[in-house]
Computed example of a mutant assay.
Amino acid sequence: MEQQPLLKVDNAGIRFGGLRAVADVEMELHAGELVGLIGPNGAGKTTFFNLLTGVYVPTEGSIFFNGEKLNKLPPYKITRRGVSRTFQNIRLFGELSVIDNVKVAYHSQAKHSIASSIFRMPGHFSGEKEMDHKALDFLKIFALESFKDEKAKNLPYGQQRRLEIARALAANPKLLLLDEPAAGMNPQETRDLMKLISLIRERFDLTVLLIEHDMPLVMGVCERIYVLDHGQMIAQGTPDEIRNNPKVIEAYLGEEVS
Rank of each mutant, 00 (worst) to 15 (best):
K195S: 15
V218D: 04
A23W: 12
Q159F: 15
K134E: 14
V83A: 00
M131Q: 12
A166D: 12
K140E: 15
R15W: 09
D149S: 14
K153T: 06
G17T: 04
G184M: 04
K8C: 07
L217A: 12
A115W: 14
L96S: 03
L228P: 01
I141N: 00
H30N: 14
I114L: 15
F48E: 05
N66F: 00
I38K: 08
N186F: 07
K45C: 13
G36N: 05
D24G: 05
R167Y: 12
P58T: 12
N11S: 15
I63Y: 01
A115K: 15
E223W: 03
G44H: 11
G67T: 10
K140F: 03
L169F: 04
G184I: 09
K103D: 01
G32M: 00
D137K: 15
D229M: 01
N41K: 04
I197A: 03
L51F: 09
N71R: 07
L228A: 07
Y252D: 10
E189M: 13
V25T: 02
F204T: 09
I14K: 06
V248D: 04
L253K: 02
Q109A: 06
P239D: 13
D229I: 00
M131G: 00
I141A: 03
F49H: 03
P156R: 10
L193Y: 03
F204N: 11
G184F: 06
A168N: 07
E68V: 10
E130W: 01
H112A: 03
S117V: 11
V257R: 12
T238M: 00
P181V: 13
V104M: 13
Q232L: 02
G17F: 11
L70C: 02
E60T: 12
K103Y: 05
E130G: 01
F87G: 05
E33I: 06
I38W: 05
L209Y: 11
F204D: 11
K77Y: 03
G61E: 13
V98I: 09
T79C: 14
R167S: 06
G18W: 08
E180K: 13
G94W: 06
G36I: 05
A235Q: 06
Q160A: 09
E241C: 11
D240N: 15
L34P: 04
N71C: 07
G13L: 09
I78W: 00
L7G: 09
G82F: 04
T46L: 06
V9W: 07
L92V: 11
L206Y: 02
P40M: 07
I165D: 04
G94T: 03
G94D: 04
S108D: 07
L19W: 03
K69P: 10
N50M: 08
N244C: 05
Q88V: 04
L139W: 02
T47A: 08
G17C: 10
R203V: 02
G32R: 00
L178P: 10
K247E: 14
L73P: 13
N245P: 10
N244E: 10
K148Q: 13
H107K: 11
M219V: 02
G39E: 11
N66T: 00
Q88P: 07
A182V: 10
Y252R: 12
Y56I: 07
F93N: 06
R224K: 15
A43I: 05
V257H: 10
